[in-house]
Design a protein around this nucleic acid. Sequence first.
DNA 1: TCTAAAACATGATAATTGTCACTTTTTACA
DNA 2: TGTAAAAAGTGACAATTATCATGTTTTAGA
Lengths: 229, 229
Amino acid sequence: MENRCENCIIRQFNSLRALNKDDLKKVSDSKISRKIKKGEALFVEGQKLDGVFCVRNGVSKLSKLSANGKEQIVKLTNIGEIMGQRSVIAEDFTNLSATAINDMEVCFIPKEIISNTLNTNPNFSLEVLRHLAHDLKEADDVIVNMSQKTVKQRLAEAFIYLKKNYGEDENGFLTLTLSRDDYANIIGAATESLIRMISDFKKKGLIKTEGKKIGVVEIDRLQELVDGF
Amino acid sequence: MENRCENCIIRQFNSLRALNKDDLKKVSDSKISRKIKKGEALFVEGQKLDGVFCVRNGVSKLSKLSANGKEQIVKLTNIGEIMGQRSVIAEDFTNLSATAINDMEVCFIPKEIISNTLNTNPNFSLEVLRHLAHDLKEADDVIVNMSQKTVKQRLAEAFIYLKKNYGEDENGFLTLTLSRDDYANIIGAATESLIRMISDFKKKGLIKTEGKKIGVVEIDRLQELVDGF
DNA sequence: TCTAAAACATGATAATTGTCACTTTTTACA
DNA sequence: TGTAAAAAGTGACAATTATCATGTTTTAGA
């Protein structure tokens, strides 16, 4: 009984906060906890989802394959986030794949519970609306960044984002460790270009590396880069 | 009395279709019709909106200025679309500017009416959710296109989109006439590059031009370009 | 712990796209 | 309807970024 939604603080960070005791009980009774290993997929592009995932722990990437076989990472998830909302709401196939970047714990909530609650609890609908609205705004920002910023600026921005969003360890390395490939797919560049740029940033003292780990050294200078010197 | 929402077919294309007679009356009583001239702004980035706009006629661009002063067009609106939903729902500043591309007729609906209806009519909330979900999916697609496709491919895609979405006149020219600048800002390229590419497409017989007007000649070959030959 | 596969890295080169400077054409409106 | 401003267009060139080839290091798992 330890894993009841009623006792889960995570829900304060997502739309489930709008649920009353009754609704919450229903969700809790029907949810299924799952562990996802690093590299495993939660769902893939084009799939029908019969529920949403609530992220208790770990980080996943939401990505899309383009015709030429390249992956574009559209978003990294945060703890507390609900995944799969869009396609459950639109009763649509998923437009993105979700893959665990590190080991994850998620709760799966069947779509019937979600739609029922949407139909009966206007507060919940409003919360979901707000979250979608937020996602949409962020997506717009990504569009602008992709088309108006150079690869170098996008990389600098990514480091700042990763530091602010996921933090760093006691030695100043980013908590979230990404492969070079993932970095390349976030900023939309060739892996080789990305690697060169990391070397460059390191040479300039903006970041430090230790194997896969990367640490932000001069966040202000990175920000200057983003703003265009 | 001719301009009552009750008699407006446009609403079948947007979330207002979920309104019952009562709700619709309230909307209709409080809405204000407005004409917007080509080039005029409906709202600008960073503004607080106290309502949404329902597009009766004309097309507008939703765009964002980047730090370097360049404009990125994120979306073109369609007839029937509701604009400003996101920021009214999130009770947030607009993240985009809306500018009329040709003369427009819009209805302004005060935000109180919208929020009230959201609070009381779950069907309306669901409809709005579906529309936001759709917008979000489209935004994801744009992100992938921006980062994975070449400027040439994005231009080819834009022509196909404009033809399918806004149609063409009796002479085979696109109904929606955009400036070269707007084209450049849609596909995220320098205006000069865009102009060169248009010349190139024309030389290859893919499109035809007559002043500002552009006509799609070989849609299949444009599609081949998009798909990567 | 050995080994193949995956990830990381670097050089050389090419393709794409942007920038700057300028001319020509079109458009708006005084 | 004349004219200034805006938009369209072109050339030369530079910067950015991708591609290909190849070598090195790291990692996972038999």
